[in-house]
Design a protein around this nucleic acid. Structure first.
Lengths: 105, 105
DNA sequence: GCCCCTATATATAATAC
DNA sequence: TGTATTATATATAGGGG
């Protein structure tokens, strides 16, 4: 069981990918819920599955937050990125760099 | 170190709450990144910190997804909730019920 | 605030039902 | 699809620098 080290790359097997998607989506929603409760933060998540279904999580209200988002400057690691956003590739690249650094140490 | 079982409730100590927020936000963004890469899903996250800053994560593009969201039916656990959303309280209630069930077993 | 460390809690991949 | 199991991987609370 789970002898394989989980590489962060696309899962080719469709069935496994679907299972992984369901589990991780649930996990993320749970963590989002915990964050909002424990830290008093507001968080909205929108997920589009490969199958084309959309799932959302919003605290307190996803429509409210989407609207609020339009009028807020956005920060990434304390850097203001005004009306921009971080791409998945960019974010993953940063994370991988950090991981690599840690392993070297 | 960490002898306390972390209860899912509001952290009263402001300093601890801030630290917890930072760590967990980073963790959620990382997991969102992994989900999009491994499963080919599209995911957008908007977080408003208690301090009033907004952080976003979007794959492939948060504005695109926010827009796309407007035109999609939304599902929660395969239940179509057309143009509605799940509240944090509601979601947490469901999760806690499930946890309670598991502990009984 | 960030980074490091450690012990523990949680998430999850593979599998079976 | 959902549930359960189990071993492992990851996340994280608390504390120090």
């Amino acid at each position: 069981m789970d002898k394989v080290k989980i590489p962060i790359k696309k899962i080719e097997n469709p069935n496994k990918r679907q299972v992984c998607y369901s589990k991780r989506k649930m996990g993320i929603f749970k963590k989002a819920s915990e964050l909002s409760i424990m830290c008093g933060a507001e968080i909205a998540i929108i997920v589009f599955s490969p199958a084309g279904k959309a799932f959302t999580f919003g605290s307190p209200d996803i429509n409210f937050m989407v609207d609020k988002y339009q009028n807020f400057p956005v920060y990434i690691n304390d850097k203001k990125v005004d009306k921009s956003w971080i791409s998945e590739q960019e974010y993953n690249f940063i994370l991988r760099e950090l991981d690599a650094e840690k392993k070297h140490t």
